[in-house]
Design a protein around this nucleic acid. Sequence first.
DNA 1: ATGTAGGGCGCG
DNA 2: AAAGCGCGCCCTACAT
Length: 578
Amino acid sequence: MTAASDRSPALVALGRGGPTAGWTALAVDPGGVAAESWSLDDSDLADWVRVMEAAHAPRWIWSDTAAVYGELLGSGVRVGRCHDLRLGHAILTARTDLPPALIDRTAPDWAVDPLTSTSPDTEALFVLDTTADAQGLPRGIEAVLEEYAWQQAAISASAQARSLRILLAAESAGALAAAEMHAAGVPWDLATHDRILAALLGPRPAAGLLPERMQRVADEVRSALGDPTASLDSPPKLLRALHRVGVDVESTSRWELQRHTHPVIGPLIEYKRMARLLTANGWAWGDEWVTGGRFRPVYVPAGVVTGRWASSGGGALQIPRALRGAVRADPRWRLVVADVAQLEPRVLAAMAGDLRLADAARGRDLYEGVVATGAVATRADAKMALLGAMYGATSGESGRLVPRLRRSFPRAMGLVDEAARVGEAGGIVTTSWGRTSPPPSAAWRAVQERASQPDATPAEQERARRAARDRGRFTRNFVVQGTAAEWALAWIADLRQRLHAIDADAPTAEASGPVFASHPHLAFFLHDEIVVHTPASRAEMVAQAVKDAAASATRVLFGGFPIDFPLDLRIAETAAKE
DNA sequence: ATGTAGGGCGCG
DNA sequence: AAAGCGCGCCCTACAT
């Protein structure tokens, strides 16, 4: 290993290969030109990164945060900043304003995702590099360096260079937060979980049996169906059984069942609710996903095209409200639980520069504010109308209310209407920071092309119109959902740095792992809400940091535009609402 | 036996 | 059966 120079490297690229079989680290300038290099064995990497981080806190450039940082965290090493090339690549290659010279780059190709790159639906945009690791990502130091230089050039060439730099920094910070939350886990109390399940379903049964209360409800359903062997878990069979007792439904969904009156309806809906809880988050779920007092979801940053996170395994983003009481702080620790009230309509107001909607949003409840303008009569109507506007409702209660909003908030409504128009025409829309919607699929274009021919049948034309409207609803929502995801990203990116700055001479949470054991840390994130696990003595400081981070997110995304993002925030021992 | 599609429902 | 966006996961039915 060569000695570190006396200059402080601001950027360090990390990749496989070099003189040894291990890792090579390169201090680089912003253009991606290397100035100094280190060669590291696998066993030295974590300690070396720890030392470099403490001395220089560089921005680490690597192919894939989940893989590289996951290993580092496992060795107890935390870093402050990174540039995730995989996430940056996905954003930049989707842009349509790159000069041809940058689009034409062929080698080394950087697989965005082996799933999408090999799926038959997409054109062969990405060819897997033979030096790729198991995830299909080139981690060789030369590929890392070249990709970084390409991304810097692509950003600079873009019409939105400034905001794209912020987006990539926030996206990378989010990837760090995701890896950290996975490593720290959500404090999960299986005893409370068991009590909740027992109260709702009956005590945990022996293997192969239904819990007692659930069995009783199942018996009621079968009795009301007059069929002791009726199958309740098979929609087709259940549907036939319902028809036999005169319940004329087309499906077995709760929505349709609710509209009928029959002795079977009540118990059946109750049974379905119980079955859902048992199979999705019952005792078996706890056995499989909770270890050492922690639930460790795998977050997938930007797993949704809009930039929202997805998750994989354990249904992390679908924890039912009924179980949130099982999220419990360790002894002498607290949870700081916060969510944003009506994030998406507030984002819409700000990105559209709609001062009237921003006025209505000032204070606590945006929907009440909309009622106060006289646009609609009730809070329920305001909510229905706004969701309808952002989702593209055309009929029903919601569709009827949207035009009233259009009159009161022409700028906000104009923005989503325009996004829908562009989408219907096959165009691409972008978020505030410059994440672009995917282009229409080849199938979609073919349908439109077919319908435009002189001999197109009415059915073909109708099909094309429907596909166009479907896509319009998607792009309509994309701009709002995607920009809301950017606000949330800015929030947690800022928050994790503020939390790190809080000094913690504090009790230890053993299950959280060495990096977070005595320090406030993000434990959970879901679109517009966060849970921080913190020593009780630091809870007030954390609460302030959460608020400050929200204010910072608003500033960095919307500048001085006068928009409020009020938080519902509480310090508690559990994540259950009251 | 194994893979996939669709119904259904939890979350935002 | 959702009118109206985005997900993941369970189950069953059905194809291979």
